[in-house]
Design a protein around this nucleic acid. Structure first.
Length: 897
DNA sequence: TCGCTTTCGATTTTT
DNA sequence: TCGAAAGCGA
């Protein structure tokens, strides 16, 4: 059992009063929140579903979730229904509740930023950009920022210019017409329904009792409004944050919410957690010395608890003559530090590569240090360097489409660009693939449905005989081709219905002007595997993390603190005085200082600060922060400091204790074929879109509404079905004729379903129910059951789990019943009861396709899951042999297993 | 140190 | 394209 400090205990025990926790870096904040949640659950009349916790990122959410699950298992054994406690981001909560309560939003999907950009450019004429006199392609990101700022900020009472109002209106209408949300709309639309009397509001009122908001310092006005509405409906509120760690002001984070929380909420108890359990006294002192230069902050002081001992030489600052010298120094220190004994929470081990991080203010510094590390064979991981389009394989892939568009006329160039990638590529086959391309060249009057970029890409690879094995000497090539498949998918989701000639032309333009700096190299997305390597990341990404060894290099003026940037910004188009607290978007020295503070406080013990004049004209002078931390006595300069006096032992990387969260669809994919899983989930190959896409999901959503209404006591009549189909069946790429056919078919299927099943509707227990269970091995499985029925049979009741399936749905997959019995485990976790029957219901034939009695002796399915997650983590994903599924698997084109 | 001209470089990122 | 930093002359 962990011992808590008095302040921590006070926070944990304050359950029924509103609570503000000011938690400094390393104060054990996550542990405190988790324990407080467990204590809430220990009370009578509180169930997991009464609790809602917001985090800033999905990653933080899964950390908090697994911590809570772990503590609950220890302290409240037998507790059921954990899945019904919401822990996640505000965005995904909003999306979840709006889709589950306002049924028309079921068909909506959320546009990622690159897809949003594509969408805006595609509808440039009607989406409002023209009204603001902004240029297609060039100003798109600024347009997005303007739309975001105007909807997520507090507006002043200055009238909004008419063209802006028109733009805003057009922008949202165009998105809604196409069943898309942007990230802001998820929140604004949900907020609308929370404010008015709706079944969404009722559900919050009857369900939620405790609201917890983590990283409260980074909340923006629209998010605060949502939080406040939930609170007003009748929730206890607890906010946790640190004003010194606000670093997202350029996204609208507003410090004032945490600074005056107790003025805006009633009966607030404020607790400060000032003990830092993470870092040595030296690190804490440097951080404190820096942050005290900020004026806008709460009066407080972080105290080193002494979990780490400061030793002379742990913290160094050196200034070099050139960046090369500086990088060489970092490389050398990494080598020296590897193997130094490091003790933490009672365990001792030798430091290894993964204990070290190099923190950057800007990405443009990453490639230099990466080169230096590569030279000395030090393993490292970088994210965020978007150089996909510089690679030869992607240039070759783009050539396919340049050739099709007649932009590239000479087939020899195309062939050579592929041939040069690997000796293993067969030239004869390449010729065939190119010959086939000639047949695909679009004509003036061809129909969009005949010309699908993704199909062309797959066909080319298949005909040229390209598989992973073609690049055995360079495994990254195939990863990058997978990433290119995603580029095509992003583009085509938005531009599928363009006429072929136009589609290929704008695709090439997208690659040239839009996509270039947007896609990382594919192998960086291989996230399941935990590699022992030095990490290179931005300070922003390091938020919430900790490392025994932290490097903060390049401490120059105009780098950290960063210079303000010129160029055309959003304030050229909209007036500054439209927005309250506009200045915070521009950022200043205090924001940069907070960033530096966050960077320093990532360190547990070793902290290496350095700088050197660079070749850039404005990065030659030392950062002002050097002067600021120089008041601390805990550092000195020494370029050749050696660690001879330290104890060296065997380097041992920290074991990854993070739970992995897998969902049913990922697992189903894996069980079908582990190589298919690798191709889709890790390499990122996307299957081609089709004209009929959306049918399965549409039917599914109609049924969901019918079932939900039935649960609420409302009967759906046959007459209402056409209307329901109109609302839910969204087939974005279908022509009018095909759409009519699909809708007619849908109505038929659903009428028949209703006729056959209506009499059993009173036995529905749940519909679209989230489930979850964990296997005690740091693996959490989650998913969603379509329908659960409970029938009374001669005094006993029988529970069936039903999964809907449509053979016409292109996205469908075949799984064995045994694997579906995963659902039964989830149901048991949810309700504490065992389910009896498992049913696959075929919607096209309108009959149960398979039914089985659930066998609870399935230890072996548990074993399969554990094995699966191990293999996924270790990247052991081989092609399966003699797989019955192969003949129908789309991926076999690039597999040939 | 001021004021003008020239030169340089153009974040950060989650949902 | 444009703002800020550096350079320069007084």
């Amino acid at each position: 059992m962990i011992k808590y400090t008095n302040n921590q205990q006070e926070a944990i025990d304050t359950l029924n009063q509103n609570l503000q926790i000011i938690a400094c870096a390393g104060s054990g904040k996550t542990q405190v929140i988790s324990q407080r949640i467990v204590n809430i659950l220990k009370q009578d009349n509180v169930e997991p579903k009464n609790i809602i916790a917001f985090t800033y990122t999905e990653k933080a959410a899964s950390e908090l979730k697994s911590r809570v699950v772990k503590l609950c298992k220890e302290q409240i054994p037998g507790l059921k229904g954990m899945v019904e406690m919401y822990i996640g981001t505000i965005h995904s909560w909003c999306l979840d509740v709006i889709q589950n309560h306002i049924y028309k939003y079921q068909k909506f999907s959320v546009l990622s930023d690159i897809k949003l950009k594509l969408f805006i450019d595609r509808y440039y004429d009607t989406i409002g950009m023209k009204d603001l006199d902004m240029n297609m392609y060039r100003d798109t990101y600024n347009f997005v920022s303007i739309m975001t700022v105007l909807r997520e900020s507090e507006l002043s009472d200055k009238p909004i210019p008419e063209n802006l109002q028109i733009a805003l209106k057009k922008y949202e209408t165009t998105l809604i017409k196409n069943a898309f949300f942007d990230f802001t709309m998820i929140m604004t639309h949900t907020l609308k329904y929370i404010k008015q009397e709706s079944n969404l509001k009722q559900s919050i009122r009857s369900k939620l009792k405790y609201l917890i908001v983590d990283e409260y310092q980074d909340v923006n006005p629209i998010q605060e409004e949502i939080i406040n509405e939930i609170y007003k409906i009748g929730c206890n509120i607890c906010v946790v944050g640190d004003d010194d760690q606000t670093i997202y002001q350029w996204r609208g984070s507003d410090l004032k919410y945490i600074l005056n929380f107790s003025k805006r909420y009633d009966n607030v108890k404020s607790v400060k957690l000032m003990d830092n359990f993470r870092s040595s006294a030296g690190v804490v002192d440097i951080a404190e010395t820096i942050i005290q230069h900020n004026e806008k902050r709460l009066n407080k002081q972080m105290i080193a608890f002494g979990s780490q001992k400061y030793e002379k030489g742990d913290i160094l600052y050196n200034r070099f003559n050139s960046t090369e010298e500086e990088n060489d120094y970092i490389v050398n220190e990494i080598k020296q530090l590897r193997g130094i004994e490091f003790s933490n929470k009672g365990t001792k081990r030798g430091l290894d590569y993964s204990d070290m991080v190099i923190l950057l203010r800007k990405w443009n510094k990453a490639s230099d240090i990466a080169t230096a590390l590569k030279k000395e064979n030090i393993p490292f991981i970088v994210g965020g360097v978007n150089k996909l389009f510089d690679t030869d394989e992607i240039k070759a892939a783009v050539n396919i489409f340049r050739y099709l568009s007649k932009d590239l006329k000479d087939p020899a160039i195309l062939i050579n660009s592929w041939k040069n990638l690997s000796e293993k590529i067969d030239t004869t086959k390449l010729f065939e693939a190119v010959k086939n391309l000639d047949k695909e060249k679009p004509e003036e009057d061809s129909f969009y449905g005949e010309f699908i970029l993704q199909d062309i890409f797959w066909d080319f690879l298949q005909q040229a005989g390209i598989t992973e094995e073609s690049f055995e000497n360079d495994e990254f090539v195939f990863y990058n081709l997978g990433m290119f498949s995603q580029v095509i998918d992003d583009y085509e989701i938005i531009n599928f219905t363009r006429p072929p000639l136009e589609e290929i032309k704008t695709f090439l333009e997208f690659i040239k002007y839009g996509a270039e700096h947007h896609y990382p190299e594919g192998w960086l997305n291989n996230t399941y595997k935990n590699i022992n390597a030095v990490k290179i990341m931005t300070i922003f990404q390091s938020k919430g993390l900790e490392f025994p060894v932290v490097f903060i290099p390049y401490l120059n003026k105009n780098y950290l603190p960063s210079q303000k940037f010129g160029g055309k910004g959003i304030w050229h188009t909209i007036s500054r005085d439209l927005i309250i607290d506009q200045e915070r978007f521009e950022g200043g020295i205090e924001d940069e200082r907070r960033l530096f503070y966050v960077a320093i406080t990532r360190s547990q013990k070793f902290l290496f600060l350095s700088g050197a004049p660079t070749t850039k004209r404005n990065e030659k002078k030392e950062s002002q922060f050097v002067l600021e931390f120089s008041r601390s006595d805990y550092w000195f300069s020494s370029k050749d400091h050696n660690f001879n006096k330290r104890i060296y032992t065997e380097p041992k990387a920290l074991e990854n204790t993070e739970s992995i969260i897998l969902n049913f669809s990922i697992l189903k994919n894996y069980f079908e074929c582990s190589y298919k899983f690798k191709m889709s989930a890790l390499y990122g190959f996307c299957t081609p879109l089709s004209i009929r896409i959306g049918y399965g999901r549409g039917i599914h959503n109609v049924l969901m509404e019918i079932h939900k209404q039935s649960l609420a006591g409302i009967t759906t009549t046959t007459k209402e079905i056409p209307n329901l189909v109109d609302i839910h069946v969204h087939i974005p790429y279908a022509s009018k004729r095909i759409l009519r056919l699909i809708k007619r078919k849908s109505i038929e299927v659903i009428k028949e379903y209703l006729r056959l099943n209506e009499k059993n509707f009173d036995s529905i227990e749940y519909t679209e129910k989230e489930i979850q269970f964990d296997l005690n091995e740091n693996i959490i499985i989650n998913g969603r059951i379509d329908l659960i029925k409970r029938k009374k049979l001669d005094g006993t009741s029988q529970v069936s789990i039903i999964d809907f399936k449509s053979t016409e749905d292109a996205q469908t997959y075949d799984v064995s019943m045994e694997q579906l019995s995963l659902y039964a485990l989830g149901y048991e976790e949810l309700s504490g009861e065992k389910a009896d029957i498992l049913e696959l219901y075929n919607l096209d034939e309108n009959r149960p396709y398979k039914q089985e009695i659930i066998d609870y002796e399935f230890n072996h399915i548990k074993k399969q899951i554990i094995e699966a997650s191990r293999n996924i983590q270790e990247n052991k994903l081989a092609k399966t042999k003699d797989n019955k599924q192969c003949w129908r698997c789309f991926y076999k084109q690039l597999c040939k297993g």
